[in-house]
């Protein structure tokens, strides 16, 4: 703020894109809270340690191969969590001394988010070649 306070207010512009991104971020927070714990448990803990319900012969690749429900579950959970976590972390970084890099961090954050989501979708399609036909 200048000492003499100039009243040259620019006409406010609704940050519509950012509003949408915030909506996705919130949705991602919801998905991460409700679906990510069970996903981490199944893939990262139950399978390697042979715990219930993966104490049989199944390995967690069945989650992403064959059933539309499994593929959808993995896609929304991973994409939502990635969006939510990166969005939050890049803004936390600006609050602990990297304010100068705000624009760059934001750009890097969205790059990671969208590259990650595109790769995720690509791999899921490769693993399920019949999926587009559904």
């Amino acid at each position: 703020m200048a000492a003499g306070v100039e009243m040259r207010e620019e006409a406010p512009r609704v940050a519509r894109l950012h509003a949408i991104l915030w909506g996705i971020f919130s949705l991602g927070g919801m998905l991460a809270a409700f679906l990510l714990p069970v996903m981490i448990y199944l893939t990262g803990i139950a399978y390697p340690l042979g715990l219930w319900p993966l104490n049989g012969s199944r390995d967690p690749s069945f989650l992403v191969m064959g059933t539309l429900l499994g593929v959808l579950f993995v896609f929304v959970t991973v994409a939502g969590s990635l969006f939510h976590g990166i969005f939050r972390f890049q803004s936390a970084l600006t609050e602990v001394g990297l304010l100068r890099l705000k624009k760059g961090l934001e750009a890097a954050g969205y790059l990671i988010i969208f590259a990650g989501i595109i790769l995720l979708a690509y791999y899921l399609l490769v693993l399920n070649p019949s999926l587009p036909a559904l």
Partner: peptide, 15 residues
């Protein structure tokens, strides 16, 4: 009022 609170430096900065 919406354009004022919904511009970039309105509510979106809040974490």
């Amino acid at each position: 009022r919406f354009p004022i609170v919904h511009e970039m430096e309105g509510v979106w900065e809040c974490t």
